[in-house]
């Protein structure tokens, strides 16, 4: 008999708690939706809700706002000087031919005989080994926390990841900071791009990034391999391996553009800009 005592309240409690629970659950999910939206959008989202009571005014704002913006946006072009355009275009054509007639066939042959997993592993290995470039440049930019993360990443991937062939770090977002290089360091020191320059073999660059490239070269361990031919050979292999994983990307860019030279120049500048910002 005594056992039944608690059950006596069950119907009452069930009705009460189920009802309240359900209501609370809905209330919570509703709030959750709002708070998530607020998290995503910050304060602006709340402003938006208030403003949306007058859709007419909103649409007017919108048209004004963006007619102005259609006009102002030529930042990218005005930021990069290209006084060597003639020379650069010749170099661009040279590199283009080199890609289609030498690098691409070699990379395709290599792709044919090498499993993708291995090629990815090799790419990871080379990325891991140039850890000093990222570490030193993190320090030079005062990003000490990031330098620590890079070090953790290097230790984890070198040990658990078999010399960096594998990337056990990839499952942890904080272990994957955006890579820094010397060109970016110069940029954070306030040094501008200078002008655009296309190097034979090395491809698109700017004056600043060319000096950055020299800095990277000094910091990359494979630069110190002896003899020099071995060092260059390994670099060549690295490039072939990398290209085998990106075949088709340059082709698409070229096919989809009206002036591939300008498309590549703009893509380079935009991409570098993003890297510097990160």
């Amino acid at each position: 008999m005594a056992k039944l005592k608690p059950t006596r309240k069950i119907p009452f409690l069930t009705g009460m708690s189920a009802g309240l629970g359900l209501s609370l659950c809905l209330l919570f999910s509703w709030w959750h939706g709002i708070s998530m939206a607020a998290d995503n959008g910050g304060i602006t989202k709340k402003v938006e809700v208030m403003a949306s009571s007058s859709p007419v005014a909103k649409d007017q704002d919108y048209d004004e706002e963006y007619d102005e913006e259609y006009d102002y946006g030529d930042e990218e072009e005005s930021l990069i000087n290209d006084p060597l355009e003639g020379f650069n275009r010749v170099m661009f054509t040279f590199n283009d031919r080199l890609y289609f007639h030498v690098l691409k066939p070699v990379a395709r042959g290599y792709r044919f005989v090498t499993p993708k997993k291995i090629r990815m592993g090799i790419r990871n290995f080379f990325y891991n080994i140039i850890y000093p470039v990222r570490f030193v440049n993190d320090l030079l930019q005062g990003k000490f926390k990031r330098a620590g993360k890079e070090t953790c990443r290097f230790i984890v991937n070198t040990s658990v990841g078999f010399l960096g062939f594998m990337t056990p770090s990839k499952d942890y977002a904080w272990l994957n900071p955006p890579p820094e290089d010397t060109g970016q360091t110069f940029a954070t020191w306030g040094i501008g791009n200078g002008f655009y320059i296309v190097w034979p073999l090395l491809g698109p660059s700017t004056v600043r990034d060319s000096f950055g490239f020299l800095g990277d070269y000094v910091l990359e361990p494979d630069s110190y391999l002896q003899p020099l031919s071995l060092s260059f050979g390994i670099r060549g292999f690295e490039i072939i391996n990398k290209t085998s994983l990106t075949l088709g990307e340059y082709e698409t860019l070229k096919e989809s553009s009206f002036d591939p030279y300008i498309a590549v120049r703009n893509a380079y500048i935009q991409n570098r800009r993003q890297a510097i910002k990160e």
Binding site: D59, G73, D74, E76, S257, A263, N266, Q270, Q274, A275
Partner: peptide, 29 residues
């Protein structure tokens, strides 16, 4: 947001905005 509806106008891949890239080409053209 165009007339209350959200529509896409640009895609940015690896920091490269499609619109800006074409813009640089059409400016020249």
């Amino acid at each position: 947001r165009k007339h209350g509806k959200w529509v896409g106008y640009d895609v940015v891949i690896d920091g490269v905005s499609l619109v800006k890239n074409y813009r640089s080409q059409f400016n020249e053209l």
